[in-house]
Structures are given as C-alpha cells and as structure tokens.
C-alpha cells in the first residue's frame, strides 16, 4: 500500500499532467472558437493600442479587468461601428456628465484599429457570456425585451428608467408613427444628419418590427 503522502503527490502530479493536456487541447480548439484567422495586422494593432492606453484597468473585456467602466466584449455588436468611432474620437461629447473617459486624442488610423479589434472580440465564442437579461416579465411586450437586449436604455429612458443622453421614449407613440421609428432604427442620420445614434439595420426584420410596434404603442 502506498503511503498517503505518495498518493497525494501522485494525484497532484497527475492533475498537473491532465491540466497540461487540457491546455494543449484548448489551444487547438481556440483557433476556431476565437476565429484566429480573422486576427489581421489591424486587429493586432488594435490590441496594442488597447494595451498601450491601459484600457483594461477601467473596462472589463471578456469580463476581466477594472469594474469602473462598461464591459466591451460585445460593445461592437451593441453599439455598432459609427457610434464607437464617434465615442472614441470625443468621449466627452457623448457622455458630458457623470463618469468620464479621458480623451486620448486618438488618430483616425488608431480608431480604425481599435474598432477592428473590438469587432474581432465581439465574435469570440464565450459560451454564451454575458447572458441576455431575463428580468422582463412574460407579460411584457417582446419589443421591450429587444429594447433592453440592444441596450437602448443606455441612452433612452422609458418612464424615468434609462439614460438621459437621447430623447425620452415614454410617449413616443403619440409623437411618431411605426414607420418613422423603423426608419430611425435603420438610418438615424436620415432624420437628423448629426445624430449620434448607431444604426440597428443589422437586426433581423422581425425584431425591428417588434421593437417599432412596442415603441409606437407607447402613447
């Protein structure tokens, strides 16, 4: 019978070997899971800029980092290209009060690289993290769920709950028609050339309809 000590050490060594084996397998699988073929020189440059300005000590990415500023893992998917560019150019213009991000005076080429990097990150297979909010009661309109999932409430408020950056939508239905809202979702600058709202054209048509129906119903 081996002594307890031998058993414990053997188990420890075995666990180290198992861990190394899993590491080899993980790295093999991570190529496809992270779309490593899409890591272009521009994406790598974006990662360098991200690290150079130590963005990760305020923001989390993949849920890791400082908890002071929003997680950016899915920011490309949520905000879209145009909004991110505008924000990175002049953060203070979009959020003029409250918690601030310094203006790093990034050059356009740097912003291009950062946005390419964030686009790449947003496509990493994260096993479903972060989870979609579940707090909406079943009887709520499906459009409201989309409103939350797309983080519209970061800028727009409904009945006092939400951001103050963009117009209140509590009575949106009594001001605009569904068609007008759909047009706004697809092309915000069509109505207002200097709008900072990102386009949500990429959403499936059914979701856009539900969202517009919901907002048009807010009388």
């Amino acid at each position: 019978m081996p002594s307890t000590r031998t058993t414990l050490w053997a188990a420890t060594l075995l666990s180290a070997f198992v861990f190394l084996g899993m590491t080899v397998d993980s790295l093999r699988q991570m190529g496809a899971r992270t779309h490593s073929d899409k890591i272009s020189p521009q994406v790598v440059e974006g990662k360098r800029i991200w690290q150079h300005y130590d963005c990760n000590d305020c923001h989390t990415i993949l849920g890791i980092g400082g908890y002071y500023a929003p997680d950016v893992t899915k920011s490309y998917a949520i905000r879209g290209d145009a909004w991110l560019r505008q924000f990175l150019k002049e953060p203070g213009k979009i959020y003029s009060t409250g918690r601030q991000m310094p203006n790093f005076h990034l050059a356009d080429a740097q912003i291009d690289s950062l946005v390419a990097y964030l686009k790449w990150v947003s496509e990493v297979d994260t096993n479903g993290w972060p989870p979609a909010p579940q707090g909406v009661a079943r009887e709520e309109a499906p459009g409201f769920k989309i409103f939350l999932a797309q983080h519209c409430n970061a800028c727009h408020a409904i009945q006092g709950s939400g951001g103050t950056l963009a117009p209140e939508l509590t009575h949106e239905g009594s001001r605009q028609t569904k068609d007008w809202i759909l047009a706004q979702i697809n092309d915000p600058r069509g109505h207002k050339p200097d709008s900072i709202m990102p386009s949500f054209e990429q959403l499936p048509q059914a979701e856009k309809d539900e969202l517009a129906d919901y907002l048009a119903g807010l009388k």
Binding site: A69, P70, D71, P130, P133, Q134, G135, L148, N153
Partner: peptide, 13 residues
C-alpha cells in the same frame, strides 16, 4: 444590470 438589463452606468448611479 445582468438580470433586469439596465445600462451599466445607470446601475453604477
């Protein structure tokens, strides 16, 4: 933030 889906900065407030 995670369950109800409120925005990050609003929750921080």
């Amino acid at each position: 933030q995670r369950v109800m889906g409120m925005d990050f900065l609003e929750v921080q407030n």
